[in-house]
């Protein structure tokens, strides 16, 4: 478990998606790589829709980067998202319901 601010969690998740995109690119899974890039962008955009001022409490949750090696192909990437994002969504829910909803959507 790692301690985040909302901003640092958003940045971490976006970096995670970008790392997935690079991995998928390297293995020739172009579509999966594009999807991960789109997800990174959607995660960053969440900053535009949240009421940050009321929700600055610390968040303790998983570091997605620790699980990067678990995903070698698109199917494994989907499984990884399901596993990791489900837990992160649960932990971030009290602080940002918007981010929690997005993570659930990206992992469904």
């Amino acid at each position: 478990m790692k301690r985040y601010t909302l901003s640092s969690l958003i940045t971490r998740l976006a970096s995670f998606e970008e790392a997935l995109a690079q991995k998928m690119d390297a293995k020739g899974y172009v579509e999966a790589a594009e999807r991960a890039r789109r997800y990174a962008s959607e995660i960053r955009e969440i900053r535009d829709f949240i009421i940050v001022e009321m929700t600055l409490e610390p968040i303790e949750t998983l570091d997605p980067m620790e699980f990067l090696d678990d995903a070698a192909n698109p199917e494994e990437v989907d499984n990884l998202r399901r596993r990791v994002y489900t837990k992160i969504a649960e932990d971030v829910e009290p602080v940002s319901g918007e981010l929690a909803d997005l993570l659930r959507r990206l992992s469904s």
Binding site: I50, V52, E53
Partner: peptide, 12 residues
């Protein structure tokens, strides 16, 4: 202030 707080200020 922190970036989170400053971003919140901009949003507001």
């Amino acid at each position: 202030k922190t970036l989170d707080e400053a971003r919140g200020e901009m949003r507001r």
